[in-house]
């Protein structure tokens, strides 16, 4: 296998101390290769979101190491970490986290501008991405004028602005109804098919089913991992009740 995009070893995150000590993440190791799509599932409070924030350098681990695109981010100063987050990682959050005062297009332009792209280049890239998420006709709308599904599609376009090595998504359908979930699902299928490396934390089994690796987490630890490839014993026609 080629060098992993992301390699974490012995990762732990503790909050508080003494009797109030909480081990949110406890001795987790994970390696994600290029083009892999990994879903991390588990009950609320199992530490999966904290883990994602550690992997993306939004929080620092109590112990353990993380290499992102070959760089050991656990020992990098904040300024370097911010640079890496902008260039190597695309984040997608449950609550979208769009800038309310900016239009859809401006939201998607923002990461490229922050990374030093020219306004013209940032605008071109935003145009491409809004086309990719099928929201060209909503480019000049403020987030408040968009549906939940559309906002999340804008957020996904924004996450891709700087062609990140990896996209990290935290419950991307957690705030969405069934129809909007389908819109996001379609994009995740496309991203995976296009070879984008992805780690998604979710309790939505529809999103989990788009991944090719499934990791179960409980009480801060990995308790199981399985590959969602290699077909199933039951065919689609059987599942539909056309064969018994």
């Amino acid at each position: 296998m080629t060098e992993p995009i992301l390699a974490a070893r012995g990762l732990s995150k503790e909050y508080g101390r003494g009797p109030a000590l909480v081990r949110a993440v406890h001795d987790v190791s994970l390696s994600v290769g290029g083009g892999e799509s990994v879903a991390i599932v588990g009950p609320s409070g199992c530490g999966k979101s904290t883990l994602l924030y550690l992997l993306g350098g939004l929080e620092r681990p109590t112990s353990g190491t993380i290499e992102l695109a070959g760089e050991p981010i656990h020992e990098r100063p904040e300024a370097r970490l911010a640079h890496l987050r902008r260039h190597a990682v695309g984040f997608v959050f449950q609550a979208f986290h769009l800038v309310d005062e900016l239009t859809a297009r401006e939201n998607v332009e923002l990461p490229a501008l922050l990374a030093g792209a020219s306004p013209r280049r940032a605008r071109e890239r935003a145009g491409e991405l809004l086309r990719q998420v099928d929201l060209e006709d909503r480019a000049e709308h403020l987030p408040s004028a968009l549906s939940g599904g559309q906002r999340q599609r804008v957020a996904i376009a924004r996450a891709l602005a700087n062609r990140p090595s990896i996209v990290l998504a935290d419950e991307p359908t957690g705030n969405l109804d069934t129809a909007a979930t389908t819109e996001v699902l379609r994009l995740f299928e496309q991203l995976h098919a296009s070879g984008q490396t992805l780690v998604v934390v979710t309790h939505d089994e529809r999103i989990a089913a788009t991944a090719n690796r499934l990791i179960s987490m409980r009480d801060g630890r990995f308790v199981g991992e399985t590959r969602l490839t290699g077909g199933t014993a039951r065919s689609l026609t059987e599942m539909a009740g056309l064969e018994s």
Binding site: E205, R206, A209, T210, L214, L228, G230, G231, T232
Partner: peptide
């Protein structure tokens, strides 16, 4: 695992 693989297939279809 079986059901998730089935779900993925049905969803893609």
């Amino acid at each position: 695992r079986e059901l998730l693989i089935g779900l993925g297939e049905a969803q893609r279809a």
